[in-house]
Every structure is written in structure tokens, then in C-alpha cells.
Design a protein around this nucleic acid. Structure first.
Lengths: 344, 344
DNA sequence: CTGAAAGCGCTAACAG
DNA sequence: CTGTTAGCGCTTTCAG
């Protein structure tokens, strides 16, 4: 009972059965759309249930079925700031997952897990609270994730596909995304393109790889000083950009590992009196909603976030059914807006 | 069983009992910290359980206890865009709630509910999936929420406190927040302050009320043309600001109903060659993370988001225990950054 | 302090 | 097509 007052016991299947003059099995079958039940009886029971505002107790159902139709979703959080990694990309992803799970009649259990103790997420599974887990963000935790896979916890990670990977991942094609972005800048005649991102993280590393490849393909040399390390946080992105500009190294283009980084970099550029896109053309990554609405609207690499949720859910459900789904790499595309233009 | 292969039945209490040579009752008590158990036995059992990597099956526990220690969290979504309302403020709130619930050993069930069918959220409760519900965002759904309250669904809403309100709400002090923001601008000598927001929504309306009050207090007349209606979305905020500037109505200050609106307005101002804060000083509302990192850093009204989660959870749990908690209004404060300065 | 036994609300063989 | 019966894995009286 939820309420302290024992006023009105929550109605349950037995009540419906009694009132309808049938057994609980019949009620159960009627309500669950079993085929071996008289259409008329079903009508009567369904009607009655609705009129009494009855709805089935899922705890009981789940216990009986041994499956709770709940998926745990984990966005690792940083213990130091005790805060969700605040990239808006994740909110979009959460929405996409919620959609995909709702479509399949699964519930979404949101859980905070310390990024340093990613193995805690096994608890979600071990206690039966979730029949599978989706991790948004691989970060630098490849090894921890591999260990979890060995423990046979069914989970899927949003991130890059890596060598010796024992778990299933879904991510965008970072390499080709990086090439697309950088190629675009090079084709616009940009020659000194900075890369903003933390290449110790797999996803950013692959995007950087694409950056290098594009340069090679276009026969443009890469100045290693143009590699500007920064995490995915707004504050660090700004600081990094700032520090870079203070060095006076010339540049005419930027490929940032995320839209958040790109947008913050643009702010710093503006503050330095540099014009985007004329002086410095900027390409981001993600295509978050804000990308279309910042100033100037950001040219970026679109990650198919809507498909991402569905893809991850699909993989996870397959895994739960005992299959061994392949990791998936989703195609990216270049979305051209106003933050890039031909070199003057 | 989650896996299709019947390989290794998940270990359960009976197994521990057998291995420890005690009854399941004893194991249950030991694991749940009952006082009437031998300290040594408890040690032995706890040890064994840990070594076997056992964790209790929550479905069963919940069924038995008739309480599932799960709270449903609903961010109403807009059917037309099939998208979460994308204000980053909500992500922060979600984090805050996740924290507060985790602290109290509750799970967070995230659910999408069509804003037009808010009563669907009763299903979360009726099916026993959640023992209470938190709604982030009241929007214009006061009446729907009142109906739910009549149906005795335990829920708490983040939003404004309204007349004839049958449900429990937690929100920031919009009125005084509005006064704080506007008073700050007036004290800086700003005389033509625009208000950006949708006053058909209760929260924005109260902030606007504060705006009016501050003007009255300072003896500054309000030009109704400076009231610029806009929803809480980035695109609309920009369009509204744009349209306003095109009219050529002079202004030297802006109070926006949210940081997102403020930041987008600043972008448009910049594009029009107006300097923030010199030409137009801007104050936002929320103090989302990005507010500190945009250009220029945004002066804003801080909503105590960390307390907000805790406050809502407290109210909800009290309600679940049969109490009738009061709605709460949390204090706001003015956070001065660089988007405001004295009038030249 | 510990064990035996009785369910929590539901589903699924197995018989009619 | 429907009812009977036996649990899902756990907690909790009630007796020892």
C-alpha cells in the first residue's frame, strides 16, 4: 500500500475475477490478449477492468515472468563535480533512448554511476532492477567495460569501436566524420586548421585521425601546434582556445570534437575580434539543437541521434535474448551552416 | 532468466541459506540489517553473499513489501516535435533529482509523457511501476494537474504556486526573482528594459509580475511595447528578438525568462552590432551551466537546482506516507556577471 | 536468536 | 474456452 491510510486497498485481479464471476486466470488472459479466450468474455472483463480503473501490478507480473522490461541507462558522472557530464548531446540521447524504449514497451531506469566505478552498474543488473544496461559515453573506460563484459552483464555502450573490444558498442563513424569536417574546411581553402579535443578519448582520437587523413588526402601539411587539447566541458574549451590565441599561432579554421567545444571556441574568437567564418571557419561535431541557433549557426557533423537510440536498444535486446550482436557504426553527414566560408 | 541459455541460474537467497547452513529467513534478516541476529552469523552470511556476488532480487522484495522504491520522473514532451523540451535547465534538474533519489535509495524511472495527455502519467502509479511521480514543468497544465490530484495520485510538480491549486508544487520564487533581476537593471540606470518570455505560462507570468513591481518601486514607467512574447525555445527567442529589433523600438536592458532565451537574444543583439552589456544589459533566469560560459558571461537569477531536487523528493515521499506537504517556494539570488553594466 | 510456514499479485502448465 | 494449482524470490509473523 502506498498511502498510510488503509482507506481503499488497491484493486487487484482477484477483485475483477470475483466481480466478473470468472477465475483470475481468465482475467489474466483477457487482459494480456491471449488468443484462447472468448471474445465476449474478454470484452466484458476489459470493460470491467477499465471501469474500475484497474491496472495490473507490474511488480508481481515481473516477478512471475522473471523479466522486468526495464533497461538501465547510465550517464557516467564525474565525482569531483558531482554532476552529470553536461553536454546537451546527452539530453538528446536520453530522449532518443526514451523513445526507442517506449516504443518497445520497456521502461527506462536512469542511474547515476561514478565514472571511476563503472562496474557499479553491474548492480543494476544483478539486483534484477534492469534486464540490460545502456551506457552513454565510453570515455576512457575501455578496460572497465571489458571486465563487465566478461561478467556477462548485458550492456551496450555509446562510443567508438576499439581493438580488443569484448562489449558491444554503437557510435557514429568518427573517422569519416573527422574527414568530412576537415575535408570541408580544406576545400574552402583553409590551410591552418586547428583540432580542438582530447585525443586520449577514443571518440575524439578517431575524429582526429580523420582530420589527419583529410590533410594527407589534400596534400596539406599538419602543424602539430594546431592540435589543441581540451576536454568536452565548456570551461576548458574556452580556456584552451584562449591560451592558444594568446600564443599568436596563426589559424584560419577549426575542427572541434563537439558542438559544445565549437560554440565556446567561437565565443572566444569573437572576443578576440576574430570574425567567424571569415577569419576562422569553424566546424563542430554532434549537431545538437543549439548548433542551429548559435551565432553564427554552426556547420557541423551530424550524428544520427534518433537512430542511435533505436540502434542501441536493438543491440541490447538482441543481447538479452542471448544473441551476440555486432557493434554498429552509424553514418555521419556534414551539415553546412554559416560558420564556414571560403578563405578570403 | 535473462539469457536464453539456461547456463547458470542466477544465484538466490535459498542458495546462500543452503551454503551457510541456515534458513532463508536468517539470510534475509542478516542482509537487511535486522537487529535480532547474531553478529557472527551476520558476518558469515554477508561474507558469503558478497563472495558469491549475490544481490537481492528487487522484484520479489518489492512485491513482498508492496512498495517498489521507484519514483517516476516526467518531463512532458511536445508531441509536434516529438522531442524533449530541450532547455538544458531540465538536464540539471534531472541530475539533481537523480542525486536526491539515489541518496534515499530510490530508483528513478524516466518517462515520456505527451504534454497534452498529462493524465497518462497516472498510469505509472496505477501499474505500480512508481510509487510517486515528479513532473518537471508545469507549463499551462494547471487544470490537468488538479484533476490528477483529485484522483489521489501522489505527485509533485516543479513550477509556480497558483491559486486553487490542489497539488503540491516546488518552485523558485519567481516574483522576487523577477524583482531582483529588474531591480538590478534599474539600479544600473537602465530605463527601457524589455521582458522576454511567455506570460501565459505561470512561471514566466510571475517573473513578469516581479518586473512590473520593480518598475513601480523605482518609479520607472513601463512601456508595454517592451514586453516581447516568446516561448522557451531557442529558435523562437531569436525570432522574437529579431522581430523586435526590426521595429526600431529603443531599449537598453533585457530581462529574459530563462537563460536560454537570454543567450539567444544576446546572439541576435551582437549580430545587430549592439554591444552587451554597454548598449543593452541582459539578465537571464535559471543560472544554467552555460550561463557562466557564454559571451559575455550572463548575469542571471540563480535557481537553487541542487536543493530543488531534494525538496521535491522530500515533498513526494511525505505525500506517499500519507501526509499533506505544503508547496514550497525556494529562494532565488542574483548572480552578477558581465552581461550587465551601468548605463553609459 | 533462529526456523517453519504463509503469502505479496500474478502467470502458465495441466486438466477438464 | 475456462478453472485449478503451483509457484516466481523474498519477508515476516509465530513458534520454538
Amino acid at each position: 500500500m502506498a498511502t498510510a491510510e488503509n482507506d481503499k486497498r488497491r484493486i487487484q485481479m482477484a477483485d475483477i475475477a470475483r466481480l466478473a464471476g470468472v477465475s483470475t486466470s481468465t482475467v489474466s488472459r483477457a487482459l494480456n490478449g491471449s488468443t484462447l479466450i472468448n471474445e465476449e468474455t474478454r470484452q466484458r472483463i476489459t470493460e470491467l477492468a477499465r471501469s474500475l480503473n484497474y491496472s495490473i501490478n507490474l511488480s508481481a507480473k515481473n516477478l512471475r515472468l522473471g523479466d522486468n522490461r526495464t533497461i538501465g541507462v547510465v550517464i557516467p558522472f564525474d565525482r569531483k563535480t558531482r554532476q552529470h557530464v553536461s553536454d546537451p548531446f546527452f539530453l538528446g540521447m536520453l530522449g532518443s533512448l526514451a523513445d526507442a524504449l517506449t516504443d518497445r514497451q520497456y521502461d527506462l531506469l536512469l542511474s547515476r554511476v561514478d565514472a571511476e566505478h563503472l562496474d557499479d552498474l553491474a548492480g543494476l543488473y544483478d539486483t534484477g532492477r534492469a534486464s540490460g544496461i545502456i551506457v552513454i559515453g565510453q570515455w576512457g573506460h575501455h578496460d572497465q567495460l571489458n571486465e563487465l563484459a566478461v561478467r556477462r552483464v548485458p550492456f551496450v555502450v555509446w562510443g567508438a569501436q576499439l581493438p580488443r573490444q569484448l562489449y558491444c558498442s554503437v557510435g557514429s563513424d568518427n573517422l569519416s566524420g573527422g574527414m568530412l569536417a576537415t575535408g570541408h574546411l580544406l576545400e574552402l581553402g583553409r590551410q591552418r586548421i586547428a583540432f580542438l579535443g582530447d585525443t586520449t578519448l577514443p571518440e575524439a582520437a578517431q575524429r582526429y585521425e580523420g582530420y589527419l587523413l583529410a590533410h594527407r588526402k589534400h596534400g596539406v601539411p599538419v602543424d602539430p601546434r594546431l592540435h589543441i587539447p581540451t576536454s568536452f566541458t565548456a570551461a576548458e574549451a574556452q580556456a584552451a582556445m584562449q591560451a592558444f590565441l594568446d600564443q599568436g599561432i596563426p589559424l584560419d579554421g577549426i575542427f572541434a570534437a563537439s558542438d559544445l567545444i565549437a560554440m565556446n571556441a567561437m565565443g572566444v574568437l569573437a572576443a578576440h575580434g576574430l570574425d567567424v567564418p571569415r577569419d576562422v571557419s569553424v566546424v563542430g561535431y554532434d549537431d545538437i539543437e543549439a548548433a542551429a541557433h548559435c551565432h553564427p549557426p554552426l556547420t557541423t557533423i551530424r550524428q544520427p541521434i534518433d537512430m542511435a537510440g533505436a540502434a542501441m536498444v536493438e543491440c541490447l535486446l538482441a543481447m538479452i535474448e542471448g544473441q551476440r550482436p555486432e557493434s554498429r557504426i552509424l553514418a555521419t553527414s556534414l551539415k553546412i551552416r554559416s560558420s564556414t566560408c571560403p578563405a578570403p
